[in-house]
């Protein structure tokens, strides 16, 4: 549990980031949540950290201006495997488009797809599954 309490949320909608933050802190005790409205800022944050936490759960919106979720993943792919291994990325999107969902499932760096809104129940399922695995 301890190693999973670091979170990054990336969404251009601050209200969604707020909602995610509240839900994460409700489900996971002592969770540390860093929220970003711009994907580029999150990339900078990751590359500028001297030491990364052992595991960070990253909730990524797909449709964002300037840098979309997919473009973030393209940039993220250039990180070393060592860095990538420290992240578990979930797409968090309001999209009901099958292509978005299938693309998420097929992406090597993406662990799963969460349909908005994020709820305590959905987060619970994810983490119980993760624990079971």
């Amino acid at each position: 549990m301890e190693i999973k309490n670091t979170f990054i949320t990336i969404d251009d909608d601050p209200v969604n980031n707020l909602l995610s933050k509240i839900i994460i802190s409700k489900v996971i005790d002592g969770a540390v949540v860093s929220e970003f409205n711009f994907a580029q800022d999150a990339l900078d944050f990751i590359s500028n950290q001297a030491e990364l936490p052992a595991k960070t759960t990253l909730l990524l919106d797909i449709n964002m201006p300037e840098m979309s979720g997919w473009e973030f993943l393209d940039a993220f792919a250039t990180f070393s495997q060592e860095v990538k291994d420290k992240f578990e990325i979930y797409m968090l999107s309001s999209s009901v488009d099958d292509t978005d969902i299938n693309k998420s499932k097929a992406h090597t760096d993406v662990t799963g797809y969460i349909s908005k809104p994020l709820t305590m129940g959905k987060l619970d399922v994810l983490f119980n599954k993760a624990k079971a695995a």
């Binding site: 909608d13 209200v15 969604n16 909602l19 509240i22 839900i23 409700k26 449709n63 309001s94 999209s95 009901v96 488009d97 908005k116 809104p117 994020l118 709820t119 305590m120």
Partner: peptide, 21 residues
């Protein structure tokens, strides 16, 4: 379809998520 998917659904999911809480 895109608008429905994002621009309508995004604020709506926020409202659902927040009100559930």
């Amino acid at each position: 379809a895109f608008i429905v998917s994002h621009n309508l659904r995004a604020p709506l999911t926020n409202i659902i998520g927040l009100s559930t809480l």
